[in-house]
Amino acid sequence: MKIIVAVKRVIDYNVQVRVKADGTGVETENVKMSMNPPDENAVEEALRIKESNKANEVIVLSIGDEKCQETIRTALAMGADRGIHIKVDKAIEPLGVAKIIKKIAEKESPELILMGKQAIDDDCNQTGQMLSALLGWSQGAFVSKIEFVDQSINVTREVDEGLETLNLKLPSVVTCDLRLNEPRYASLPNIMKAKKKQIDQINLEELNLDINPRIEQINVSEPPKRKKGIIVADVAELVQKLKNEAKVI
């Protein structure tokens, strides 16, 4: 079976993002970019499934500008077999991303699509669920464990009350939590090998899709800042402040 993994290129999670003064967005010039963190877990899981002989090909897909190839290359260096880059130069919403991946899925016929549960830039938490609905497939969202049982999978999902296990018919779309696994580092030989792996580039126009944004971003602003607090000398002062000043205990 084939697995497709969708990876997004985002501002690195260690970067303190800054809102642009003109309110049009956040600063992206000269800012470190990386693979969206849970997408690394999705790549790792796909590789483990392949290594346990339950899959024979791992395809990595990314949608965005030319630089997305670097992100795909990172996944290839981890061990994925080939890449697909859908070149889009403008901002694109989860619905548009889901429509594009659906097209690719129809062509490649994977049995499993793995993605991150949430992109840490837009914090939308939508794309995998949308894709699953558009394909009419089963859905495992926020997953921290995947097990194969006969022709189906059992997924353990992180939900508000604890953990929930579902049995999903294949094909399926699964979105991954950071706790699913520990992503590997690419070894030097694998980084070298990845340079020769194939990345197919597809222009958006070829797909014939309407992915125009439906949501207008009117402005982006700084969150309200908290008033600077104080450092207390000891526990006694802390309790006194909480009781008499803040009046919360």
Partner: peptide, 15 residues
């Protein structure tokens, strides 16, 4: 909120 609450977006839906 976007970017883990480090920025706040005002958005208008045209759907």
């Amino acid at each position: 909120p976007i970017y883990a609450g480090n920025a706040i977006a005002k958005v208008k839906s045209n759907d």
